[in-house]
Design a protein around this nucleic acid. Sequence first.
DNA 1: CCAGGGAGCGTTATAGTGTTGCCCATACGG
DNA 2: CCGTATGGGCAACACTATAACGCTCCCTGG
Lengths: 167, 167
Amino acid sequence: MDTAKDANARSHAAARNSHDHAGMGDLVAHAVGHCRERGLQFTPLRRRVFEELAGSGTALGAYDLVERLGRERRISPISVYRALDFLIEAGLIHRIALRNTYLPCHHAHGPGETTVFLVCATCGNVDEIASKAVAQDLDGMAATVDFKPHSRAVELEGECAACREPG
Amino acid sequence: MDTAKDANARSHAAARNSHDHAGMGDLVAHAVGHCRERGLQFTPLRRRVFEELAGSGTALGAYDLVERLGRERRISPISVYRALDFLIEAGLIHRIALRNTYLPCHHAHGPGETTVFLVCATCGNVDEIASKAVAQDLDGMAATVDFKPHSRAVELEGECAACREPG
DNA sequence: CCAGGGAGCGTTATAGTGTTGCCCATACGG
DNA sequence: CCGTATGGGCAACACTATAACGCTCCCTGG
């Protein structure tokens, strides 16, 4: 379902006010509902940051966002970080620690699941897979040393199928 | 912020890991042998960086090392980064992506194992556990999407047992 | 002996990432 | 009207990492 392959939508999306990317509208609509349910404010700035991430099809750095949003009007890094913090807190996006980048969460978070990120070292694309087995393993290991995790970062760096194709 | 974090981490390590400090010599001896076997140069600078990490009992940032080593004589960040890159490449230390810190590898790396890091948000201490189950899960998941991982970052952030003690 | 090449490390400068402090605007309940 | 909570603006700063270039040392082959 979600896209390992249409990463290059970003050159597309940059052209204009990116309604291009398939599924982006769904993501935004979901985010709106998600925030409404919880009484969180999905403000225009937060929406723009989320849209840009959803429309890009890849993980973006904070300063990528600063630059992209800054084309419309000047946005300072701190504003972007505040929006990112909010979106992470709300569970709408993920942060990729290996790369200092951010990407929209593509699936509903099941309880007892850990999201595993597959980061391609060549094209930078990030694939996202939820796993209950990993979650159980990790929780079990944490329990054995009496450690209470708040958040998990499970990230593999390597090469995706597309980048290994001959040619 | 760094000084506070540093002091915290050190006192914690001293309380909990005092035994590991005795093992610092072992770590260094192991590193020496490890490099000799492979024809790698365990130079004085690299040795000092490794010793500092092994002796601290916690994960340190690159600039923590710059400061510590800089007390003896001026060391530039790039030199520290070069030593860190070497040590990572050699498999002697790990980088904690969640914190941009580095710590010595405490166990022999078995094949088919993934190292899981438990990072305490309060004291900054990092615990390290090897797991075959996680490795198998992750490899299996990667295989289903035809992804070839080079490296893994499996890191949990939370609170360690010592920091949750009533008090 | 002396090139010549590679590895390690020095220096300076710069790029990239994230944070702090302070102020202003708006919204909302007294 | 005020007080307060929240979102957001700006400049400046702090932290993390890399670039570019040159030097020394050691090794190897002519």
